[in-house]
Design a protein around this nucleic acid. Structure first.
Ligand SMILES: [Mn+2]
Ligand SMILES: [Mn+2]
Ligand SMILES: [Mn+2]
Ligand SMILES: [Mn+2]
Lengths: 217, 217
DNA sequence: TATGTTTTTTAGATCGCTCTAAATTAACCA
DNA sequence: TGGTTAATTTAGAGCGATCTAAAAAACATA
């Protein structure tokens, strides 16, 4: 079995892999894990011995097939628990991440399977992130940054790329949640802000906000 | 915050306190925690510094008010999660203990409160053990060993004192679960075995089994 | 109550994870 | 291409939890 720490490293490497081209660097992992590069090197060596990452000195790491499988299962658990917390226990979408960070390490295959079934085999978590299936397949949905939409185009809010409570609460305040349909009414080249129209209201969105909202066309 | 290990020690000391008169001994804790006496002494010192146990060398320990409160909250979480696993995820009563051993360490007060509410504020876990309330009160139910019933007396199966999967599965095989009503039809002085009659069938129970079944009269 | 046995504590070590400081390697650029 | 800078690794240490072996205290009983 792997320790919580090892699991968190694998998950971090998985996520960094998604965002980066090529190998994941020691410093990037250190930043993601909120730790020091020296500690990362130590852990990488351990993961490498366990055949969970491919590692050559000074070259950064990639996940092995086995390591990637473990990372995906942790993400699966994280997102299933988030779905449970929001849809069964009535938590808000900005309240569940930290709890899921703990729950994702509970180690029981039947628990995950039954939870999945109990929840009705959900495909997306409360933030629009896809939930990996039992066998580890994960289809990345084709979402766009809202900021990429042109004036006049329509879309449906389907995800966020900033998962912080502050951002999620801001969206909540604006009555912007998953499923909201919108149309771009105006784009300002000067500051890349935009004005959108939803069923309920007209909203002004800064560049930062529009960049972190994902929409399906 | 306290580590998982510290929490498990507190819980073990709490349970040993219930079973024993006076202070809980180092060796008893070592046996319960499946560790060595020397390790227990170390941990006790740490818990004592944190004011979670009262400790004087060679005198064993008692929980402080604070330590007892923490222990009870862990037991609360354990039993609520067991209830969830059985009543929402359809686990059998012999399958849930180990998973709950992990879940009991998830650290979130709102999670426990909402789970409690979601479950309908249950008073007993799947094994008949009382679930402490949010404020830590815990009423010990007045159950008797089935072996104490006399011939002709009636009772309702309400709990078990052996929580092992083997015992629980045996009861299941005999169609003995919580809520089953029974009447003692015969007691054998020689081996302290007994014959009982339920709605469904007549059963022969050994001394060991009758000792580990708790009934309400 | 003295002596032997059991229980408990202490001493000293290991393992996992972390850190700082120093050394090494790679990358960049004039 | 050599020199500077940045990234990475190594060395050495600390902390929490554990262990074995040995010492100390408490207990039991003759
Ligand atoms: Mn999350
Ligand atoms: Mn999420
Ligand atoms: Mn249990
Ligand atoms: Mn139980």
């Amino acid at each position: 079995m792997n320790s919580f720490t090892e699991e968190n490293y694998l998950k971090a490497i998985y996520k960094l892999t998604e965002e980066s081209i090529g190998n994941v660097t020691t410093n990037a992992i250190a930043e993601a894990m909120n730790t020091k590069a020296a500690s990362v090197t130590d852990m990488i060596k351990k993961l490498s011995e366990k055949q969970l990452v491919n590692y050559a000195k000074y070259q950064g790491v990639t996940l092995t097939h086995k390591g990637e499988g473990i990372a995906i299962q942790i993400i699966r658990k994280h997102r299933l628990w988030e779905f449970f917390l929001v849809n069964k226990l009535n938590f808000k979408w900005d309240e569940v991440h930290d709890i899921a960070e703990e729950l994702e390490h509970i180690n029981s295959a039947p628990l995950v399977d039954r939870l999945d079934e109990y929840l009705g085999f959900p495909k997306f978590d409360p933030h629009g992130d896809p939930i990996p299936s039992k066998n580890g397949t994960l289809k990345i949905p084709n979402f766009f940054k809202l900021s990429k939409l042109e004036t006049g185009e329509r879309g449906t809010v389907s995800g966020v790329s900033d998962h912080s409570a502050a951002f999620l609460q801001y969206l909540e305040k604006q009555h912007l949640g998953l499923g909201i349909q919108l149309k771009v009414s105006e784009k300002n080249d000067y500051d890349n802000s935009m004005i959108i129209i939803t069923e309920e209201r007209t909203l002004f969105l800064s560049k930062e906000v529009a960049n972190n909202i994902l929409v399906a066309k």
